Computed example of a mutant assay.
Amino acid sequence: MRTALVTGTGLIGTSIALALTARGVRVHLEDRDPDQRRTAAALGAGTEEPPGGPVDLAVVAVPPAHIAGAVAALQRRGAARAYVDVGSVKGGPRRELTGAGGDLRSYLGTHPMSGRERSGPLAATADLFEGKPWVLTPTPETDTEVLNLVLELVAHCGAVPVVMDADAHDRAVALVSHTPQLLSSLVAARLESADEAAVRLCGQGIRDVTRIAASDPRMWIEILSANPGPVADILSEVAADLDETVRSLRALESADDAKRGSGAAGIEAVLRRGNAGRERVPGKHGAAPAAYETVGVLITDRPGELARIFADAGRAGVNIEDVRIEHATGQQAGLVQLMVEPGAAPVLVASLRERGWSIRQQPGR
């Protein structure tokens, strides 16, 4: 691939353009918003100049409702040898493209499973897709050359290709992406009118659960409007679980021992189901989940503290698998939780203590 056209210079489109440009591909940028296009170009994502002829690959990075129209328009003008979209819903846009007389031989629907809470070109990074799954939904009509160009795109972006049926993809993302977004927003919405004293008690748990609630509502309305049925089906199942959980909690209030026992059993059941589900979430680089030991390090909120911890861990020869930071309420201090292989934890603890760090070791994952 030597040339590409990116239509839509938001977070995903600009990140793809940055990754391709870094690999030596000449990227042309299009967007109905000239300011957004200029911003992407200024970031080094490509040129605003139109291509002089058909490019190797046209990447359509627009909201799901506009994918079919954008692909069809590009195909009519012969803009590229191959066309790909990167929307978060796949079945509907492909059916719309077919209905509009689009050419399925030169088109392939895809979905890079990566994003951020922020949107727009200023949030884009060339490494946004590194190590992340990138779903491809080819059909029997998909031309082999098109598939190869798209696989090259995925490789340039450092992602991992995953082939799926389009409708199976939409059901999957309803479970692992779209429903979690709504649940995060529902939990965060409870904080809107909460007492200030309660909000001040927010810790890492509520931060983890509500992190994606900061996402752009306009973007999510577009996404959910394109995949409402599968999301509603999953939320119906969640609602049934919530009803049962509420009944179990009410039973725990009872003075009757049998009812309290039944309530406790109900709560334990949902917690254990949660344990089992969490165990299935892939670990680092998509591998099987791994059990890590958590080493807690108390730090002050001074510049360079985190860098010192990582440097000291490196001197100890220990690889940090994951990290979390929990800030202390009302204090310029916090707890850094370093997740490491269990066998490395004693080495790290001894080394950090030797260098003056205050340690709180705890089991974890």
Rank of each mutant, 00 (worst) to 15 (best):
P161N: 11
G283Q: 10
D256R: 09
R38E: 13
Q75Y: 08
T137Y: 10
A68M: 08
T179W: 02
I16E: 09
D33Q: 06
S254N: 02
D103P: 05
I206F: 13
G274I: 11
S215I: 00
A226F: 04
G364I: 13
V187A: 14
V340T: 07
A40D: 00
R353S: 07
A269G: 09
A168H: 14
V150D: 09
V176G: 06
L182E: 02
P54E: 04
A333G: 03
G314W: 07
A264K: 00
I234Y: 14
A276L: 15
G296I: 03
M113Y: 06
V340S: 06
A4M: 09
P133W: 14
L306Y: 11
V231A: 12
D216K: 01
I325D: 00
T125P: 00
S15G: 09
S106C: 13
L175T: 12
I12Q: 00
P303T: 08
D127A: 13
G52V: 01
A316W: 04
V297R: 05
I12E: 00
A188K: 10
V238T: 12
L242R: 10
A345K: 08
T144C: 01
E196M: 06
T329D: 12
S119A: 11
R260P: 02
E49K: 06
G304C: 03
A265G: 04
P54N: 03
Q204L: 15
